[in-house]
């Protein structure tokens, strides 16, 4: 290896340049979002587990219990049941159970729904110490307990 004085100077100057770059970063704002204390907005197309769209007039689900989603589901993780009530044109849902331990969030159920009663939620920090809590997520109870 040959060292010329220009090489030495150029090498030294490259080190100084590097240090200048890091010092500029030093005085800029950290980009970290301090997660448990603050969090980023969830993107629009985020896929959490499916939930019912809430009918703003009745406060209930739009589901007509046609069972298309049950048939469309490739993982067999949806169970739907419904009744035809007196004086109502459509059937209404009585039971909608989602097995989130099997769901792969493919979205076939959301796509196939004829009345657009299903949508993806934005729930991303689900946690439980028991598996059973997510084997049968009751979406009917969820939509009735939900504010919007």
């Amino acid at each position: 290896m040959r060292f010329g004085f220009t090489d030495i100077w150029r090498g030294f100057w490259s080190l100084v340049t590097g240090m200048r770059v890091t010092l500029q970063q030093f005085f800029r704002k950290p980009v970290t979002v301090h997660y448990p204390h603050e969090s980023l907005p969830v993107p629009d197309r985020f896929r959490g587990h499916i939930i019912f769209v809430r009918d703003p007039e009745t406060g209930k689900s739009l589901c007509i219990a046609c069972k298309s989603c049950e048939k469309a589901c490739p993982s067999d993780c949806i169970v739907v049941d419904g009744v035809k009530r007196e004086g109502e044109k459509k059937k209404s849902v009585t039971e909608f159970k989602l097995d989130f331990t099997k769901c792969s969030l493919c979205g076939s159920c959301v796509e196939v729904c004829p009345v657009d009663a299903l949508k993806f939620s934005k729930r991303y920090n689900l946690a439980s110490t028991t598996k059973t809590e997510y084997v049968q997520i009751d979406l009917v109870k969820d939509v009735e307990g939900r504010g919007s």
Partner: peptide
């Protein structure tokens, strides 16, 4: 703290 700021992190908080 310095390392964090150079890497634009908050460091110990």
């Amino acid at each position: 703290k310095g390392a964090a700021r150079f890497q634009r992190r908050p460091g110990p908080t």
